[in-house]
């Protein structure tokens, strides 16, 4: 660094190149290599083996379970996100800032702790365990548990995108619509929704990516029952533990493609929002 302090023309041209080179090299090593390696290993034994791995009934079931979970969690999260943003951005009430903090809680709690919380509530020895047993309701180690924990983990995603936008936009247009006689639903559909649509979609994309990839929380509440409560990320671990590396990488490649797709959509939306 000392050489730079007497920055002649050579040193001042050299330093940026050095920094850029270092940044690119580290990123290649840490971010790009793991990304490429997933596909390299997934296709290591050829297309046929790759296709066979993905078409295996247990893998197909895992893909289906992950899809169902996302299809339920994401719309619910969108509804919650809009409701939370509307309440916080458009009205003043006591405890408003506390509510905003509460919405953000899942970001700072490790998913595995979320899973433990749910098990301590709905599990056999949990607070509601005896009651659930009595009514023969299975929450843990079944689809409801997977969905609930995914809802916990993804709770802030839509709200935190829509809320700042609603606050920045103000409510004049909505007030005008209502004053001119629009019903609540008309106002929402014709004024609010068009105004927040890109932020909403952005939050939904992030929420989907997170819901599909959730591992720690789901791993606590699913019980890892092969072909039953095994989501795709859990299936990756199962295949890895079975020493079926190519299978694990094939399953992982599906998740990676989804993640890359989410990033592409995200950057398109960022462009739209300006």
């Amino acid at each position: 660094m000392q050489t730079v302090s007497h920055s002649g023309p050579v040193a001042s041209r050299l330093m940026p190149r050095l920094l850029i080179g270092l940044a690119v090299a580290l990123t290649l090593l840490i971010v790009v290599a793991p990304l490429f390696y997933i596909f390299a290993r997934a296709f290591a034994e050829g297309w046929r083996v790759y296709a066979d791995n993905l078409l295996h009934p247990v893998t197909r079931h895992a893909i289906w379970l992950t899809t169902i979970t996302a299809l339920i969690v994401v719309p619910v999260n969108i509804a919650f996100g809009i409701a939370a943003a509307w309440a916080v951005a458009r009205f003043r009430f006591p405890g408003r800032s506390l509510l905003v903090t509460a919405i953000e809680i899942p970001f700072s709690i490790s998913p595995i702790i979320a899973g433990i919380c749910y098990l301590l509530l709905y599990g056999r020895q949990g607070l509601l365990g005896p009651w659930l047993m009595e009514h023969e309701l299975q929450v843990m180690f079944a689809l409801p548990g997977i969905i609930l924990v995914t809802m916990f983990v993804t709770a802030p995603f839509v709200a935190r995108e829509v809320l700042p936008l609603m606050q920045a936009q103000g409510s004049e247009q909505e007030q005008a619509a209502v004053t001119l006689g629009a019903s609540g639903w008309q106002m929402f559909r014709r004024v609010t929704l068009p105004n927040i649509q890109w932020a909403l979609l952005y939050g939904a994309v992030l929420c989907t990516a997170r819901a599909v990839g959730e591992f720690g929380g789901v791993s606590v509440v699913s019980g890892n029952i092969r072909g039953q409560t095994n989501t795709l990320p859990l299936h990756v671990e199962l295949l890895f533990n079975d020493l079926n590396a190519t299978g694990a990488f094939a399953a992982a490649s599906v998740l990676t493609l989804l993640a890359l797709l989410a990033l592409v959509v995200k950057s398109i939306l960022e462009h739209r929002r300006g």
């Binding site: 690119v24 793991p34 390696y37 990839g213 990320p233 993640a259």
Partner: peptide, 24 residues
């Protein structure tokens, strides 16, 4: 591209990252 790559660790499911780093 380099800027976009910074989002990969958030987007990639942690299990996938773990699998790939382990093998790598």
């Amino acid at each position: 591209l380099l800027d976009a790559l910074m989002d990969i660790p958030f987007a990639l499911p942690t299990a996938v990252a773990g699998l790939s780093l382990t093998a790598l």
